[in-house]
Every structure is written in structure tokens, then in C-alpha cells.
Design a protein around this nucleic acid. Structure first.
Lengths: 205, 205
DNA sequence: GTCAAACTTGACGCAGGTGTCATCTTTCTC
DNA sequence: GAGAAAGATGACACCTGCGTCAAGTTTGAC
């Protein structure tokens, strides 16, 4: 009945578990109450840890928040990037990116709620990139696509903003449908931006 | 040197001015600190009123916040609606709506900051409509456009979400340009969604 | 089995925010 | 211009949340 195996030292394991527990609790609390209204105690309360323990893992509220957001941003960027790198056509580029994002979101609603509730706080802490690092990333990818002859020349700053904004709002609607309608959201987004880009291409010719 | 005229009773005027002062101060505070982190005292401090006076005008923080957001939503809805009602073609419909919104935003940055910083709080208080009442309104207008034969049939819920999301993000980028690039943002948004709607129309045929 | 080191615990003092209310000031009425 | 009513004021009592730290507990080394 004892714990089966201890890959690393017991101590090490507990520390990892505690850190993870704090992060998970914090994510839920921020999603429900919003960054400003949330307190350290609210986070700790969802954990079987004591208040003081929190401070062995993070110096303050802002740090946990940053850690969470960075983790999420990393995940999204990796997934979306991978999808876009596989693209050989403009359609694949657009479609792959949206689908990767919508899939991520549909798998992890708690995270979507967090982003939705704290879009403002995220922006003020990481304020260069509009929403997380996503927009900046997309902008770079768009420029690369233009350079590769995949997409026509366009204002990549505006285009990235429009795509991210549309994706975020679409995701919110998408997860309300039961089951989450990844297919529909992807095709709406793809149709829109593909048509838009093609029109720009046609106008430039 | 006395005050020139007193259209209504003095008392009445002061009350109106105080209410307006509180609303203006609150708007700035919420824009800077976010709803959760803001306190009544932060608001009152930007005013030449005493703390207790606040409670003669609003029972609590949530009430001021609601009053502000309702006022803004009202303004936007009126303007955008008017523009759309004038539309005789699909292009006018799309272009007019975006332009009205971008113009409003470029005139009143404090309000944009407020919306940007508190998108989450707005959604939780008024949670039916995604961002204020704007999305619901747009959705109704889109359905009317379809009924009038102006636009092809489409998923108006997704379309409205995409348009609102794109508009919000575009506005944020737009106001960073100097001078605010209403023209560019309008033409990007219009081009995108017009192309998208036309594509849907072509596919349906 | 023993012991030092690492970690956890929760009570504590402190800081700041909330809503109230007795008191003072201004406005309106006659 | 005197009196009454409306409203503004800010000090007060209360509450909640923060970060710390002395004491207790667990772990791993020998």
C-alpha cells in the first residue's frame, strides 16, 4: 500500500507537486475573480498548503500570474508555429494556425476563461505584444509568408491584430457550442482571412 | 464675478457636476488600475469631493462601473446603428459600421483604455453579450441584412464575433499610429469582411 | 536510529480599504 | 434674513489581506 516508486527524491517530488498545485489553483482563481480581485489567500485556500508556504514558491501574486501566462503562451506558440511551418499553401498557413489555436482552446477551457477574464491584466504586464506574445509571433509569420511568396504584401500589423482578435472572440463562441465546434470556427476564420488576403493579392496585381 | 446664469437650481447643477466628476474620475481609475484593483478612495481622490460624498451618488464600486460601461455602450450602439441604417449596399453596411466605431475610439482614448483594460470585468458583469451589447447588436443587424438580401446567409453568431474581435484589436493598433489611422483601419476591416461575405455568397450559389 | 537541514505551518502585526454617521456648510423658501 | 432641509465632510470602527517568522514536522544522510 506504500507509494510504488520514487523516481527522484521524495522531497523533490513534493516540491514539484506543490508548485503545480499552486499554479493550478492560481489559474482557477484568476479565471474566476480576475487578477486584481484575487488574493494570495484565495489561491492557497484551494490547496492543502498553508499561507506561508506560498512564499517559498513565489514572491508575490504577480509572479504566479506571469508564470501561468508564460506557460500558456509558450504552449500556444509552439503548437501554432508547428502548424504554420508545415504549410505549403496560403490556405494551409491560415487554416493550420487557426485550427491549432481552436484545438488548444477546446481542450483546456480553464485556460480560455483565464485569458478571457484577464485580457486586460495580461496586456498591462506583457504590454508589447497585444495578447500574450501571439500577435507578435503571427506578425513575424505573416511577413515570412510574404517573403516566401505565399501571401501577397499587406499591412502585417493590422492583419495580425485582426486575426488574433477574431480568433479570440470566435473561440469564446466556439466553446459555448456543444460539442465545441472546432471545425466550424476554423472554417469561418479561414474563409474570412483567406478571402481577405486573396482580395489584397488581386488588388495589388 | 459671480456665476453668470443658473439655468436650473444651483443645487441641481452641483449634483449633476458631482456625478459627472465621479464618473470621469472612475473611468480614468478603472482604465489605469483595472476594476479589481481600483478602490473607491482612488476615485474620490481625483475629485475635490470627500469620501463620504461618493456614497450619496453610488452605493458601491460595481454601480459606478456599470454606469460608465452602459453609457459607453449606448454611445457606440447609437453611432454604429445610425451608420448601418444608412447603408444601401453590403459595402456601405460593413464600411459604415467599422468607420463609426473607429471614429468613436479615435476621439476618446480614455474610453478605449477602459475597455481594453477591463474587457474581462465587462464580460463578467454583462455576460450575455460578449463585449458590451455590441456583439448582440451586430448579430441582429447582420440577420436583418440577410433578410433584406444585402448579405448572403451565414452563421451570424460567428460572423459577429469575428467582426467585433477584429474591430477591437484593430482599434488598439490604430490609436498607436500617429495620427490615429481611422482610414487604414476601416479599409483593412472592410476589405476583410466584405471579401469574406462575398466568398460565402459565391459558395452558396 | 539519530541528527541536521529543508521545508511547512499558522498566528501575528501591519497597512490600507470599506461604509457610516455626527457635524458642519450651502441652498432654497417665505 | 431666518429657519429648515439637503447635502458634503472626514474621522471612526471594522474588516480583510499581506508578508514574516518562531516553532514544529518531515526527509535523507550516515
Amino acid at each position: 500500500m506504500s507509494t510504488p516508486a520514487a523516481p527522484a527524491g521524495r522531497r523533490e517530488q513534493v516540491k514539484l507537486a506543490n508548485r503545480a498545485a499552486i499554479l493550478a489553483a492560481a489559474r482557477d482563481v484568476f479565471a474566476e475573480q480576475g487578477y486584481g480581485a484575487a488574493g494570495i489567500r484565495d489561491i492557497v485556500r484551494r490547496t492543502d498548503l498553508a499561507a506561508g508556504t506560498f512564499y517559498n514558491y513565489f514572491p508575490d501574486k504577480e509572479s504566479v500570474f506571469r508564470a501561468i501566462v508564460e506557460q500558456i503562451a509558450e504552449e500556444i506558440i509552439v503548437r501554432v508555429r508547428a502548424a504554420r511551418r508545415r504549410a505549403r499553401t496560403l490556405e494551409q498557413f491560415v487554416e493550420g494556425g487557426f485550427r491549432a489555436y481552436f484545438e488548444f482552446v477546446s481542450e483546456d477551457r480553464a485556460t480560455l476563461q483565464l485569458m478571457r477574464r484577464n485580457a486586460g491584466a495580461i496586456r498591462t504586464f506583457f504590454d508589447e505584444p497585444a495578447i500574450g506574445a501571439g500577435t507578435e509571433q503571427l506578425r513575424a509569420d505573416l511577413r515570412a509568408a510574404v517573403a516566401d511568396g505565399l501571401a501577397p504584401a499587406h499591412d502585417s500589423e493590422y492583419m495580425a491584430a485582426a486575426m488574433v482578435g477574431a480568433a479570440v472572440e470566435l473561440a469564446l463562441v466556439m466553446v459555448e457550442r456543444d460539442p465545441p465546434d472546432v471545425e466550424g470556427a476554423t472554417s469561418m476564420a479561414t474563409g474570412l482571412f483567406l478571402a481577405g488576403l486573396e482580395r489584397i493579392g488581386a488588388a495589388a496585381r
